[in-house]
Amino acid sequence: MNPTDPGAPPPDGAPKPWHRPQQEHEQQAGGDAIANTDGPTGMGDAVSSGAADLVSGAADAAGAALEGAGAALDIAGGCAGGCADGCAGCSLALLVTLFAAAGTAMALFR
């Protein structure tokens, strides 16, 4: 029998990776599990892929938007804090800037 016979169990007795329960893969991946994805309903996709994304296709970008706050929260959760913080942070910053600009304009006007 060959030393790496396909049918043979690994020498250390560990199961082949595909024989391990799915939960083990999930635990092993931990919080980084989603790092390699674009995010299943990634907003980036909706913005970047142009005319084709006018469609509510597999990307489901439009769907996510239509589903409203719930979907948005899903996305935020899925992004493990990254883009959620970014969106909220940017929005807040924009608001502050707007108010500040408006205040300055009013002051100048007066």
Binding site: A33, P40, D60, G63, G77
Partner: peptide, 10 residues
């Protein structure tokens, strides 16, 4: 086809 994040990692 709709996609949505689940509760588990990945």
């Amino acid at each position: 086809v709709g996609l949505k994040n689940g509760d588990r990692a990945g």
